[in-house]
């Protein structure tokens, strides 16, 4: 997959000039040929329009403008004081996701939520989770917890033979990229920042260099079994977990965001 030929590289450079905003935000492999973004955008808009029209007909309510329409449902606008406060409108700031958790409680919340979502969707990160709730798996060990969780909580330090860690792939992958890099450097093509390097740059920019330290420890001292000696603070656990999830996500989506 890493075997990117010269023509592809040039194509990518050309694409970056055509879509400067994409060049700044994404690194991607062109697997399926050029994409007509305009057409794709139109198609998306059309689909969304179809969906909202269906919703509007079903409920005879215009959700976009918040206006009732004539139909089966008799709508009335009532004061919030007349209904349970649960129905009150709420705001969600998407930006809050990327911000650092202000206190431990907040970071706990995030982890908790993550855990819920991941356990319910069996995210591919399950084998490398080092998050809080895993650490204290017993907390969630209810009578009806799924076997997946039981296994995870019962065996917090799985042996390396049985479980493949995402980190296992890192040094190997980096080496292959490095060799590619040296091969390439002889040619006249400007050296491209590989996706992996970009990711690392970004993490370090964010002040999370300890993640790579964490990897380094593993790489240099693979024989070290007593990993519990390295006490990782809850907030670090959370961060490492987030970063690992990021890796998997980027592995799946193949599109990490470059540093801002």
């Amino acid at each position: 997959m890493t075997n990117v030929d010269i023509q592809n590289l040039w194509e990518r450079h050309a694409a970056r000039r055509t879509y400067p905003h994409l060049a700044r935000t994404r690194v991607c492999r062109n697997l399926f040929g050029p994409v007509d973004h305009e057409e794709l955008g139109c198609e998306m808009q059309r689909r969304l329009q179809e969906i909202s029209e269906r919703d509007q007909t079903r409920w005879n309510f215009n959700f976009e403008d918040n206006v009732p329409l004539p139909g089966n449902y008799e709508w009335e606008e009532i004061s919030v004081s007349a209904v349970p406060s649960f129905y009150k409108e709420s705001v969600r700031n998407g930006k809050a996701r990327t911000g650092n958790a202000k206190d431990a409680a907040e970071s706990n919340m995030e982890t908790g939520c993550k855990n819920e979502a991941q356990s319910s969707f069996q995210a591919p990160t399950s084998s490398v989770e080092v998050n809080q709730e895993n650490r204290s798996g017993a907390l969630n060990a209810q009578e009806l917890v799924t076997p997946v969780c039981r296994r995870r909580s019962g065996n917090p330090e799985p042996s390396r033979q049985n479980t493949t860690h995402i980190t296992d792939f890192f040094p190997k992958r980096k080496r292959s990229l490095d060799t590619k890099q040296t091969e390439r450097s002889s040619s006249s093509i400007p050296a491209e920042v590989t996706p992996r390097k970009r990711i690392r740059c970004r993490w370090e920019d964010l002040g999370v260099s300890h993640f790579s330290d964490h990897l380094a420890v593993k790489k240099k001292r693979p024989q070290r079994n007593k990993r519990s000696e390295r006490r990782v603070r809850p907030s670090e656990c959370h961060r490492i977990h987030l970063q690992m999830s990021l890796c998997v996500l980027m592995g799946v989506l193949g599109a990490p965001k470059s540093s801002v």
Partner: peptide, 18 residues
Amino acid sequence: GTVYKARDTESGKFVALK
């Protein structure tokens, strides 16, 4: 400070939007 509530004329049940 308002909430939309509706009655389904077919089933007589009420719904509310959040």
